[in-house]
């Protein structure tokens, strides 16, 4: 239990809360990495998932590729990329994008593909153009499901961005790696606790966002 009190001391030490290597700066770095990764992953995965869900073409390939990507170990990619591409931000961010794409892709695809054929048919029969069917019917109906995938990806990215510190980058993982090097267990505990808080907070925000984009008409049907 002295470990926990050590952690508490570390967390409440004012010197850890100001300056360039301090907790707020590290948290900001952590959020920046995760933010960049999420933006890139969303830009790649959401349109692709919508396209495949809308046309129904290539769905087998998308599910297959997403499944294969999921099997790739992020730490392996991160170390391999750093070794091959050198140090810098690109290797870890690329590895994290590969981590984030599958859940967003499959969720977006599933959201669009699950739109009832009757609703789609009715929209067409009322005289909606294919673009209108996509933007006015399929997107609003798929959004809650796609947001579920985005939430999930964000959780994984924030958790895994911790290991970016392993290749000499910043973020909250810095304290974990540095603490490990000098056997400062309190600092390690503090580090992982902060990551957990960040993950929980982000998930709460995204959950609220997910609720906001879900039409009340869909909430009543949800079991």
């Amino acid at each position: 239990m002295n470990l926990l009190s050590g952690m508490w001391q570390w967390l409440t030490d004012p010197t850890n809360w100001s300056g360039s290597g301090a907790i707020p700066a590290r948290a900001l770095e952590h959020m920046a990495y995760s933010g960049i990764v999420m933006v890139v992953a969303i830009v790649v995965a959401v349109p692709l998932g919508m396209l495949v869900g809308h046309t129904g073409r290539g769905s087998g390939a998308v599910i297959g590729v997403a499944g294969a990507l999921r099997a790739l170990p992020t730490l392996g990619l991160l170390t391999l990329f750093s070794l091959l591409m050198g140090l810098g931000l690109v290797p870890p961010l690329l590895a994290l994008v590969i981590l984030a794409v599958p859940p967003i892709l499959t969720a977006t695809y599933a959201g669009v593909a699950e739109v009832s054929p009757a609703v789609r048919d009715a929209a067409k029969a009322q005289g909606m153009t294919p673009t209108q069917v996509l933007t006015r019917v399929e997107v609003p109906l798929a959004l809650p499901v796609a947001m579920g995938g985005i939430r999930n990806a964000a959780l994984q990215v924030i958790a895994t961005a911790t290991v970016a510190a392993y290749i000499n980058l910043g973020g909250l993982g810095r304290y974990l790696i540095d603490g490990l090097a000098v056997r400062d267990y309190s600092r390690m505990l503090g580090s992982v606790l902060l990551v957990a808080v960040l993950a929980l907070a982000t998930d709460a925000v995204l959950a609220a966002l997910q609720r906001a984009v879900t039409s009340p008409g869909l909430r009543t049907t949800a079991h």
Binding site: R70, P103, Q156
Partner: peptide, 11 residues
């Protein structure tokens, strides 16, 4: 499976 896959896996 698709649904769970869409919400599973964390690091």
């Amino acid at each position: 499976a698709r649904r769970i896959a869409a919400t599973g896996g964390g690091a």
